[in-house]
Amino acid sequence: MLRIEDLNKKYPTGDEALKDVKLEVPKGQVMALIGPSGAGKSTLIRCVNRLVEPTKGKVFLGDLELTELSRWKLRQARRRMGMIFQEYALVERLTVMENVLSGRLGYVGFWRSWFRRFPGEDVREAYRLLDRVGLMEMADKRADELSGGQRQRVGICRALIQNPDLLLVDEPTASLDPKTSRQIMRLINELCDERSLAAIINIHDVLLAQMFSKRIVGLEQGSIVYDGPPEDLTPEVLTRIYGEENWEATIGKVEEENEEEDSTISKAAS
């Protein structure tokens, strides 16, 4: 689904954020990208949808080479890539519904988006998604009235209403409490399963990464230093990614713990 070849990014300040990154994510795979702050995780996923322009290298979405697209073609390609952000990045003063529907902007003309006249199918899909994540009642609330977990679920709906082939997820749980973090990660995983979506999830919580994905890629100073299953994340590997530290307590059991209260969202939603 996604193929990255020798991707390089050098910022004007001289920082080399990415060095010859090679990565392939097949259809339906949820991949966790871990690494210390400043390792280039955000830069990597932003180079995919070109919110950040890569300096060198190629990125393919299916057969489409994203890195050579013109502005106009890039806009069309971005519709196939949903993005979920660290601080939710909802438009705070718009309603939940408007935020979700903004995921369709790539398909809707300027005047229709001005007057909020979205096609009926889009509106129905928006309600379906809000229902799926358990926010049906919140549709007409303003985004800044919601709690962190609720906002992130709106962010997820906005990405999914694009009907994407690929999800780019940037630290989805960084501003959430541990319980909400798990709920959000579980929700993203379930949704990816339902739609057989490929996803790259940037996450700095190693335990969460291990719990929720079958493949983990470790990035350190712009280079991939680990690529494998979560079981193989040994203290040596973590030291290679993050540096020297006592890692014994960080490495969790890989089977997901089944807490009662955690499954509330899935139940409410189904």
Binding site: N49, L51, R75, Q76, A77, R78, R79, M81, G82, M83, F85, A89, L90, V91, E92, L94, E98, S102, G103, R104, L105, G106, Y107, F110, S113, W114, G155, R158, Q162, L168
Partner: peptide
């Protein structure tokens, strides 16, 4: 917030609007 709208494939005018 602008970046998030940009990532959906919105045009410049739509990014301004939303």
């Amino acid at each position: 917030q602008v970046e998030a709208i940009q990532a959906t494939g919105a045009s410049r005018a739509q990014q301004m609007l939303y």
